[in-house]
């Protein structure tokens, strides 16, 4: 386990040092949310209604755009080859890298979301529900996105392609995340139904992402 722990610490150090760009995602999130009222108009009722969706779309884009360097930096400096040759299972390495990446870039998004929700004129219950769904849902986005990052690791400009490949796969997370957040304030469905499915999707992505990502990294090498 110590190898994985030190990998986690290394990833966190790399992400939080100068040039690591950990907070860039949160900044991007802020800008996306700020731009939306310019598009749809400053109608507070409308903003309150679409607020959870805007926060979710912002978080989705911020997560995907920050993912393209997940494995590329390691490939460039040769670290990836060492990991491939090492004894630690590659699946666990991918899992730990995703967890570290989420802690460095996903968690700030979750922490920032209540503040941004105030801009959207959302009710306190909706703010709480949206933050909770983002807390459960953004790891799923990171894990699914890791598959795309591993597939495009050898490409010089994989960022846009990564988003194209991964966005269709994030549709279920998006649907149940936004549904749970809106269900907290609107009547038709109870909050727990979509929320538990969202949690299940997160756990499923936690298995699928590392397995598929590790397979893609192995085949990118040979």
């Amino acid at each position: 386990m110590s190898a994985l722990t030190s990998l986690f610490v290394r990833e966190m150090r790399l992400a939080t040092r100068v040039g690591g760009g950990a907070l860039m995602g949160a900044l991007f999130f802020l800008i996306v949310v700020t731009v939306v009222p310019f598009g749809v108009g400053p109608d507070l009722n409308l903003l309150a209604r679409i607020g959870p969706a805007i926060l979710w779309i912002g978080a989705l884009l911020a997560t995907l755009l920050s993912l393209d360097r997940l494995f590329q930096a390691d490939r460039d400096d040769g670290g990836l080859d060492l990991v491939l040759m090492g004894e630690t299972p590659l699946e666990l390495v991918v899992l730990v890298k995703c967890l570290a990446h989420w802690t460095a870039t996903g968690l700030p998004l979750v922490i920032a979301s209540p503040l941004l929700a105030i801009f959207m004129n959302m009710e306190p219950v909706a703010i709480g529900a949206t933050t909770l769904t983002l807390l459960v849902g953004t790891p799923a986005l990171t894990f699914v996105g890791a598959i795309g990052a591993a597939l495009t690791v050898s490409l010089r400009r994989g960022g846009l392609l990564l988003a194209i490949l991964v966005l269709p796969l994030t549709v279920p997370v998006m649907i149940f995340g936004v549904s749970a957040a809106t269900a907290a304030v609107q009547e038709p469905v109870p909050f727990a139904t979509p929320f538990t499915i969202l949690a299940a999707l997160g756990l499923f992505a936690m298995v699928l992402g590392p397995i598929a990502g590790a397979a893609a990294l192995r085949h990118a090498g040979d």
């Binding site: 796969l169 549709v171 279920p172 649907i175 499923f204 085949h219 990118a220």
Partner: peptide
């Protein structure tokens, strides 16, 4: 190989996407 991995990930996800839609 990259295409094959993405195809299989898609196959696993298609029922989930169908269900959620």
């Amino acid at each position: 190989k990259a295409g094959a991995i993405l195809t299989l990930v898609g196959v696993v996800n298609i029922p989930i996407i169908k269900f959620s839609v």
